[in-house]
């Protein structure tokens, strides 16, 4: 890999590394696994840059990060390790356990979605992007982005158990 390409890859990754961490963390819920995924994504990013640099780096990173995080979560038994959970709430271990269980269910639901549906859902729910911005980033029409969003939400609704469903404010 030539130096210019390497520094480009590094610069782009550094610009998005916090987002990469955040996307992975939302799926995984623990710091250690999130760092593993962030590192994997970085390596994949360098490989990708060597072959065909993605048109939209952010969209590519979001898709790859989410996929990798879901794969990792699903590859593990539902394990509640307590050594490194940054979102653990003091004196509320059951809270962490519940959150991890919910993560697994949402990850399972995400697996049922197409790449675009998943990308739209993550961009909308977790990144708070508008449908117009999502359409532009993913190169799809705004109505298509809305359709993907609703379909993805329906799948999530179907796949997560009633226990997690509390009254919404939408």
């Amino acid at each position: 890999m030539n130096t210019s390409l390497e520094s480009d890859a590094l610069a782009i990754f550094q610009r998005h590394r916090r987002e990469v961490y955040r996307w992975a963390f939302r799926v995984l819920g623990n710091h250690h696994d999130t760092l593993d995924v962030t590192q994997d994504v970085f390596l994949k990013w360098i490989e990708k840059m060597q072959i065909v640099p993605p048109v939209n780096a952010r969209a590519w990173l979001r898709t790859v990060t989410t996929n990798r995080a879901i794969d990792l979560l699903r590859s593990k038994k539902h394990r509640v390790s307590s050594s490194h959970e940054p979102d653990r709430i003091e004196n509320q271990p059951e809270n962490y356990t519940d959150r991890q269980a919910l993560r697994h269910e949402i990850a399972h639901a995400m697996e049922q979605l197409s790449e675009q549906q998943r990308a739209v859902l993550i961009a909308k729910v977790y990144d708070g992007m508008t449908f117009a911005a999502i359409g532009e980033e993913l190169d799809i029409a705004i109505p298509t982005a809305k359709t993907h969003y609703l379909r993805a939400l329906r799948v999530v609704r179907e796949k997560i158990s009633q226990d997690w469903l509390v009254e919404g404010d939408a």
Binding site: L102, V156, I160, L165, V166
Partner: peptide, 10 residues
């Protein structure tokens, strides 16, 4: 769907 969204935001 609003409840599903809220679960994701949790």
């Amino acid at each position: 769907l609003a409840k599903a969204l809220k679960a994701m935001h949790a």
